[in-house]
Amino acid sequence: MIELLRAPALGDVPHGFAGRQGGVSTGVCAGLNVGLGSEDDRLAILRNRDLARDALLPGATLVTVRQVHSPDVVTVTAPIAEDERPEADAMVTRTPGLILGILTADCVPVLFADKEAGVIGAAHAGWKGAISGVTDRTIAAMETLGATRAGIACAIGPCIGRASYEVTLDFAERFERDDADNARFFSAGRPGHCQFDIAAYVASRLQAAGIGRISLLDEDTYSQADRFFSYRRSCHAQEGDYGRQISMIALPG
């Protein structure tokens, strides 16, 4: 069975954060691996993408992009062929029947919805995209389609948790140079290192942008190998490859 986690802030807008449960992949990518960039069997990946789509909204069209850790956002008005996916890390739409899908394996998936305006968005916020403003740009792109900041609700899905996300002091200083208040997202670790709460950082960016309704699922991808894929965990285990899970949101057709 595919597990689709849902967020209170998004209400009855069709959405779900899938993990690795369900699916047809085997080996290190066993389960619902939807990552076309993995070395998994391509037919298995495509089947998993169909299974994920149908678990959320049967008959809809799944749209994804080539994620490159950027702040770039695309507005989607029609289906996009897999070999024509643009490089971007967020999408927005007001077109019914399209599922916006974001792939992650530790990075932060963020889903957005202004139900009243009929506008949705989805963003992949790794640390590079997060600090360069991918969520801010997603909100701005939604506004061009008629959404309002007061009307937008957001959900932050499964991602690497603070206890699992060790970074160097130099890494933390990069965030503190951007804003001294960012020091609160880092806690003490072993010498020369600290622990980063990236989900809380992304939430703070959303709050600073004027978003008042935010759900954090607080699910650590690294520490739950049976439920989620994790790039960092796969690296530590020297597995050579890793799966990706998908977070989805749609407007019913």
Results as ranks from 00 to 15, higher is better:
Ile2Ser: 07
Leu4Ser: 07
Val13Cys: 04
Val13Arg: 10
Gly16His: 09
Phe17Tyr: 02
Arg20Asn: 01
Arg20Glu: 01
Val28Arg: 07
Leu32Thr: 06
Val34Cys: 09
Gly37Asp: 02
Thr64His: 02
Arg66Val: 14
Asp72Pro: 04
Val73Ile: 14
Val73Phe: 10
Val73Pro: 14
Ala81Gly: 11
Glu82Lys: 15
Pro86Cys: 09
Pro86Val: 03
Pro86Trp: 03
Asp89Ser: 15
Ala90Ser: 14
Thr93Pro: 00
Cys107Pro: 10
Pro109Met: 01
Pro109Ala: 05
Ala113Phe: 11
Asp114Ile: 04
Asp114Cys: 09
Gly121Ala: 00
Ala123Asn: 06
Ala123Gln: 10
His124Pro: 07
Ile131Arg: 15
Thr138Phe: 09
Ile139Glu: 08
Ile139Leu: 07
Ala140Ile: 07
Thr144Ala: 13
Ala163Asp: 08
Ala163Asn: 12
Ser164Pro: 14
Ser164His: 05
Phe171Glu: 06
Ala172Met: 01
Asp179Tyr: 11
Asp181Arg: 15
Phe185Glu: 02
Phe185Pro: 14
Ser187Val: 15
Pro191Arg: 09
Ile198Asp: 00
Tyr201Ser: 06
Arg205Phe: 06
Leu206Phe: 09
Ala208Tyr: 11
Ala209Lys: 08
Leu216Phe: 01
Asp218Gln: 12
Tyr231Pro: 10
Tyr242Phe: 03
Tyr242Cys: 00
Gly253Met: 13
